[in-house]
Every structure is written in structure tokens, then in C-alpha cells.
Design a protein around this nucleic acid. Structure first.
Length: 588
DNA sequence: TGGCAGCGCAC
DNA sequence: GTGCGC
DNA sequence: GCCA
């Protein structure tokens, strides 16, 4: 068998469902997967969970990677570095099995030099003068161009037999001078040349999802979304539609047939010709506040741009004034946000919050909390110890928004209280004037004194933060030229405007609220459906049975009651918690 | 064949 | 009640 | 779309 006598070490651990599947594959083919530190010696092939490997083949999320480590982190890396062990993607296993040979040379190796950057990103001087001269920050962006590729040859097929070397001094990976990276023979290829497993199928599902999503066919689009997640999670190469339907969750006869068509012909008819109509629909729905219903209605009226709507049905933007802001920030709000920028936003908000009520707490939720490298928006949850009175929080919110606005941080608000209207009036009027709409009376803009959530547009100054080159150059949506006159999106040199959400909860409902706002949306639907099947109801206010609240403060107890493991936020991304594979494993 | 999460806010 | 967003 |  192809893995006879070969020992594998799976990092950071082999405990997820997909990795247990891989473990079984390895052992079915004569290999062994290491479980204890005492086994860390001799010939070892190191496999790294694909979700910790970036596209350019570096290690990502070192914090979580370390946290998830099953064995002794330092000792393992010491051993890997000492013996120049090759590190590969876990997904290589299915390639080997498919090819029937263990050929390391054709597989890209993982560049572990990312570990060198441990904790040292974001080193802009916080108090450096804002002069015209090139600041240290600029040069900092150009660091890290050194090549750490070792020249030495490694005979991968015949790793040297080594004795266990566990108790030597163990420098942290960050100080190891020359980690064993990207070295193999000339046949070495970069990951980017190796298509991601089943990427064609994943791409097709994504497009079908999008297609029905913009059409408003909610449930059908969800079907494709779940199918996509299943395929992404699938650790082996899908060979037929039938196989996919048999072995993966959320793949039924219709998708199986489509998979078969793609595998056989390389394309799916009707996939690429995303119709003119669909594209127009998508343009509108990309604007905050415009959903499929409104987009369809506009399309039926022959509108193809926001300017068309403004001319033909100006009332649309008067009653739906938040979409006027969606239009203005169309481009900025489609840009991704780095984790470090999210953290900067938190600190700005925290600073003002402490001036208003030092007892009120705030924390990042959403995709940031799930460990995403980039976020679409920033979600903040506010609460106050032992405070179940939301009026108190609403008042804090109002003062906080006012303070943040006065400091130039808040660009716009999508909900208004009467008091905040007065503060934002001139800004709003400016936008109405720009498109020559009549400015409505005050009571048009929200009459509630207390609101418990705010959707804001916010911007950090250059002094507070500078986006990384890559993110600044990243892809984002563009307005049609005729719509551009309304754009308030950032100029090249500024930071983009960001979407910032404020949520709040009663202290007694903190756990349930954290589940809700940490998401993902798919995870919420899954766990709420599960609750419903068990006769419970789960909302942001708590877990209920027969109208009676069972638990709302302790997240863990909610998971326990629903008989699911206490899934950490990083595993609440779609596809990472429940599939057929997972079910099999939990049943077994 | 019916169900697919559940809620707040604006209109 | 519907549309939208989370 | 998929699933019970």
C-alpha cells in the first residue's frame, strides 16, 4: 500500500470531521497518524490543515493554529525545523491516493516562514508626526522582502531516520533563523498552479447561488449555498455526480446531475450566460437597502441605473433615504476590511464609550469573531454588567453616536432619533441637494427616541490607520459612470468608509446575543432549526420551551441543552460544523 | 409534499 | 403585512 | 435547491 510504514503528523490537530476522514484514508492505505508526542521521531510527513494555509502557501492564523495544537507546540516545531521535515497540505493525501503513489516532489510545500512574523504586524508608529516626508510607516510596508528559501536539497523520499530530540532548548518559531521552507527538487510547483480541490464545482455552485439569490429565490439559492459548503469541505476529488450525491450532504439529484455535466463536459450550459437582466438586478441589490423586490420593480420600470430611478421615481429615494447613502457609499462598502483595521475601529469606539459610561462594555462580533482574515463590515455588541434596561443602553448609544460624530469618525447613519437628526441634518441635506431632491421634514427621519441598533458609515483618519497595500488595491464594486456623481467613496489616499453596526443586549441575554451576532448566518439557521426540531425556540433573547425561557446568559449551557458541542466561533463558518461526514462521526 | 430562523425597524 | 438586514 |  502506498503509505506503508509512513508516519503522518497532522497539524494543528486531526480532530475535525474532515481530518478524521483523512486519517482513515491514511490508515486504510497502510500509513499511521501520530497521536502522541512520544511518536514524534523518525520519518514523518507533516500535513497542515488546509484552512491554515494561504493561497501563496504560507501559514495563516498562527494564533488559532497554536491554540488548536494537539501536541506540544514548541517541541513539534523544534523537531520539524531540526530535521527539515517537509510540510504539506492535508489535501495532498487524496492526490496521492488518486495517483496511487506518494510523490512529494510534485506537491507544493508549505512556507512556514509566516511564523517569523509572529505578533509583529501593524507596526505603524502611533504618534509619528504627520509630515510630508516619507514616514517610517511607508518603509514598514516594504519590509519582509528577504528570501528565506533554503538552498539545501532534501531527499524527501528517504527522510533520515532520527532519534527523538525532544528536550533540546526550544526557541519559539519566531526566532528560528531559517525555517525549512519551500524546498524540494526542480519539479516544485507553487500552490497557485494547483487548482483547489473541486474548485470548478465550487465555482459553479457559487454562481448558481448568486444567480438565484439576486432573483430572490431564497430557498433554491440556499440549496446551492449549502451544496457549495459541502463541496468545499469535501477532502477528496469528486469523480462523479453520483458519488457526490451519495457521500456529501446537501447534494440531491438536481445538483448531482449538474456536477456530472460539469465533470464530463467541463462546463454547465446556462452558467456563464448570466443574463443581462440578472446583471442589472445584481447592480441594484449591491446597494445597501435595495433588495430583490425593489430591484425587480425598478427593472420592470426600465431603470438600469440609480440615476434613472432618481429621474423617473425620485420618491423612491425620499422614502427610502437610507438607500441614498447606500448609493453614495456603494464602492467603499463593497471593500473588505482587515482584522487589524477592525481592531482599530473597536479601540476608537471604546475610547469614546469610556468617556460616556466606563461600565458599558463593547466587543467585536461577526466575521471578525469567527477569525476571518477580512470582514465585510464591523459588528459591535454593547452590554452593561447587571443591566437589563435597554433604555439605558439606547441612551448611551445616542450619546456615543453623537460624540463619535463630533470627532469626525461617523460619516453617516442609517437610523435616526429626533436628537440625532438635528446633528446630521446638514450632512443629509447635502446629499439630498446633490441629487436635487426636496428635503423632507424632520419627522420623516425617525421618531423613536430609543433605538437599539445603529447601522453607521465610519472612517478612520490616515493618522489613525493606513490600509495595507493589498487591501487598498483589492477588488471592489464600481458605480456606473452615470451614477458616479453621487459617490462619496474615498479618494485614493484616504481610508474607505466602513459599515459599522451597533447592537446591544440585556446583560441577562448576553450568551444568546453573542450566538446571534457572532453568526455565521448559516450557523444561526442550523442551530435554530435544530432547536425547533427539539421543541425549543432559539432567538437572540434566549432559548425557550413553551414560552418559558430556559437559558439566555450562558452560551455554553445553550449548546449543552441543544446537545451540540460548544463549537468555537472559528468553526461557525459555513460548512465547518455539520455535514454528512460530521454526522457520521458523531453517530459513530 | 411541505418546510426551510427568528427578529427589529421602516414603511 | 411586506421589505430589508442581520 | 434539499430534506424528512
Amino acid at each position: 500500500m502506498i503509505f506503508d510504514g509512513v508516519k503522518f503528523l497532522i497539524l494543528p490537530n486531526a480532530s475535525t470531521a474532515a481530518l478524521q476522514f483523512i486519517t482513515k484514508l491514511i490508515e486504510d492505505n497502510g500509513g499511521h497518524v501520530i497521536e502522541r508526542m512520544s511518536e514524534v521521531h523518525g520519518k514523518i510527513l507533516v500535513l497542515v490543515n488546509d484552512s491554515y494555509v494561504t493561497e501563496d502557501y504560507k501559514l495563516r492564523d498562527e494564533k488559532y493554529f497554536r491554540k488548536e495544537f494537539q501536541l506540544d507546540y514548541d517541541a513539534v516545531w523544534q523537531f520539524i525545523f531540526d530535521h527539515d521535515l517537509p510540510c504539506l497540505n492535508v489535501s495532498s493525501v487524496s492526490d496521492w491516493i488518486a495517483k496511487g503513489e506518494l510523490n512529494v516532489a510534485h506537491i507544493a510545500l508549505i512556507d512556514t516562514s509566516a511564523l517569523e512574523n509572529d505578533e509583529t504586524q501593524e507596526n505603524f508608529p502611533s504618534s509619528s508626526a504627520n509630515s510630508e516626508q516619507p514616514s517610517p510607516a511607508c518603509t514598514a510596508e516594504m519590509k519582509d522582502t528577504k528570501t528565506s528559501h533554503s538552498e539545501s536539497e532534501t531527499d524527501i523520499e528517504g527522510f533520515v531516520e532520527m532519534s527523538p530530540s525532544s528536550n533540546s532548548p526550544m526557541p519559539a518559531p519566531s526566532v528560528i533563523p531559517d525555517p525549512p521552507v519551500i524546498k524540494a527538487n526542480e519539479k516544485y510547483v507553487r500552490l497557485t498552479e494547483i487548482p483547489r480541490m473541486n474548485s470548478q464545482l465550487i465555482d459553479a455552485m457559487q454562481r448558481l447561488y448568486k444567480k438565484y439569490d439576486i432573483k430572490g429565490d431564497h430557498f433554491r439559492s440556499r440549496g446551492y449555498k449549502l451544496a457549495k459548503a459541502s463541496i468545499e469541505k469535501c477532502p477528496f476529488q469528486i469523480k462523479s455526480g453520483e458519488q457526490a450525491q451519495l457521500e456529501l450532504a446537501n447534494i440531491g439529484p438536481s445538483i448531482a446531475k449538474k456536477i456530472q455535466t460539469i465533470l464530463a463536459s467541463g462546463t454547465l450550459p446556462g452558467l456563464d450566460d448570466s443574463s443581462e437582466l440578472d446583471q442589472r438586478l445584481e447592480y441594484f441589490t449591491n446597494c445597501h437597502g435595495i433588495g430583490t423586490h425593489t430591484a425587480k420593480r425598478w427593472l420592470a420600470l426600465q431603470y438600469t441605473s440609480f440615476t434613472d430611478v432618481l429621474r423617473g421615481s425620485p420618491q423612491e429615494f425620499v422614502s427610502g433615504w437610507p438607500s441614498l447613502l447606500g448609493w453614495s457609499y456603494f464602492e467603499d462598502w463593497s471593500r473588505k476590511i482587515s482584522r487589524t483595521e477592525c481592531e482599530k475601529h473597536l479601540s476608537v469606539v471604546k475610547q469614546c464609550l469610556s468617556e460616556i459610561d466606563p461600565d458599558c462594555q463593547v466587543e467585536l462580533q461577526g466575521s471578525y469573531n469567527r477569525g476571518s482574515q477580512t470582514c465585510g463590515d464591523i459588528d459591535l455588541l454593547f452590554f452593561k454588567e447587571n443591566c437589563d434596561n435597554l433604555v439605558v443602553i439606547a441612551e448611551i448609544f445616542e450619546r456615543l453616536v453623537s460624540l463619535l460624530h463630533s470627532r469626525g469618525y461617523i460619516q453617516c447613519i442609517l437610523q435616526l432619533t429626533p436628537d440625532l437628526f438635528d446633528e446630521f441634518k446638514s450632512k443629509l441635506k447635502g446629499i439630498f441637494d446633490k441629487c436635487e431632491l426636496p428635503f423632507p421634514a424632520k419627522n420623516h427621519f425617525g421618531n423613536d427616541r430609543h433605538i437599539h441598533k445603529y447601522y453607521l458609515g465610519v472612517k478612520l483618519t490616515k493618522h489613525q490607520y493606513r490600509s495595507e497595500e493589498l487591501l487598498r488595491a483589492g477588488q471592489y464594486l464600481h458605480l456606473k459612470p452615470c451614477d458616479n456623481f453621487m459617490s462619496s467613496s474615498s479618494k485614493k489616499s484616504e481610508n474607505p468608509c466602513r459599515r459599522l453596526d451597533f447592537f446591544c443586549c440585556k446583560w441577562s441575554e448576553l450568551g444568546a446575543a453573542r450566538i446571534q451576532w457572532t453568526g455565521s448566518g448559516e450557523f444561526n439557521r442550523w442551530i435554530r432549526l435544530r432547536a425547533a426540531k427539539m421543541g425549543y425556540k432559539l432567538t437572540q433573547h434566549g432559548l425557550f420551551k413553551g414560552g418559558q425561557k430556559l437559558e439566555s446568559f450562558d452560551e455554553g449551557v445553550i449548546f449543552d441543552t441543544l446537545d451540540v458541542p460548544r463549537i468555537p466561533p472559528e468553526e461557525r463558518e459555513q460548512g465547518l460544523w455539520m455535514t454528512k461526514l460530521n454526522e457520521k462521526n458523531t453517530v459513530a
